[in-house]
Amino acid sequence: MPMQAQEIEDLLRQTFPDAEIRVEGDDGVHMSALVVDESFRGKNRVQQQRAVYAALKGKMDGAQGELHALALTTRAPE
């Protein structure tokens, strides 16, 4: 079952409560997200994106995942 943007944002908000989060996409399968959070400071892009994937709690895991593709933009606040 495809995920809606609000569901993705809600999952991310649990891990990153103070982050700027924007989730876009309307097909529920191929989505994009911007996550700007202080916890990313000093981490490289791979570390930041792993943290976001972990926050999704397995929703992207394997062929049976609810979310097929999530284009991520992550960074610490300026």
Results as ranks from 00 to 15, higher is better:
Arg13Cys: 07
Gly62Thr: 08
Asp10Gln: 15
Asp10Leu: 06
Arg13Phe: 04
Leu67His: 03
Phe16Asn: 03
Leu67Tyr: 10
Leu72Ala: 03
Met31Gln: 10
Arg41Glu: 15
Val46Arg: 05
Gly62Gln: 07
Pro17Phe: 11
Thr74Leu: 01
Val35Asp: 08
Leu56Ile: 08
Met3Ala: 12
Pro77Met: 05
Glu7Tyr: 01
Val29Arg: 14
Glu78Trp: 08
Ala63Ser: 11
Gln64Met: 12
Glu24His: 03
Met3Gly: 05
Glu66Pro: 01
Met1Ala: 14
Val29Ile: 07
Asp61His: 09
Pro2Thr: 11
Tyr53Gly: 04
Val36Lys: 03
Arg22Ile: 11
Asp61Met: 10
Asp18Val: 00
Gln6Lys: 13
Asp27Trp: 07
Val29Ser: 13
Arg13Gln: 10
Gly25Val: 00
Gln49Gly: 01
Lys59Trp: 00
Leu11Arg: 15
Ala5Asn: 08
Val46His: 01
Ile8Phe: 10
Asp26Ser: 13
Phe16Gly: 04
Gln14Asn: 09
Arg13Asn: 06
Thr74Gln: 01
Ala51Asn: 04
Glu38Tyr: 07
Asp37Ser: 14
Asp61Pro: 00
Thr15Phe: 00
Ala19Glu: 00
Leu12Ala: 08
Val23Glu: 02
Met1Gln: 11
Asp61Tyr: 06
Ala55Pro: 02
Asp61Val: 14
His68Asn: 08
Glu38Asp: 15
Ala71Gly: 09
Phe16Asp: 04
Val46Gln: 09
Val46Ile: 15
Gly62Met: 09
Gln6Phe: 06
Gly28Pro: 04
Ala55Cys: 06
Gln6Pro: 01
Ser32Cys: 05
Ser32Thr: 11
Val46Leu: 15
Ala5Trp: 03
Arg75Asn: 04
Ala63Thr: 06
Gly62Tyr: 11
Glu66Ser: 13
Leu70Cys: 07
Phe16Thr: 03
Asp10Tyr: 01
Val23Gln: 01
Glu7Pro: 00
Gln6Met: 08
Ser39Val: 15
Leu11Asn: 03
Gly42Ser: 09
Lys43Met: 14
Arg13Lys: 14
Leu72Lys: 01
Gln6Gly: 08
Gln6Arg: 11
Gln49Ala: 00
Gln49Ser: 00
Asn44Ser: 07
Lys57Ala: 15
Ala33Met: 02
Gly42Lys: 06
Thr15Arg: 15
Gly65Cys: 07
Ala71Cys: 07
Ala54Ser: 11
Glu9Gly: 02
Gln64His: 09
Ser32Leu: 00
Leu70Thr: 04
Ala71His: 10
Ala54His: 07
Arg45Ile: 14
Leu70Lys: 06
Met3Ile: 04
Arg41Lys: 13
Glu9Asn: 02
Lys57Ser: 12
Ala76Lys: 02
Val52Gln: 05
Lys57Cys: 10
Ile21Val: 08
Asp10Met: 06
Ile8Pro: 05
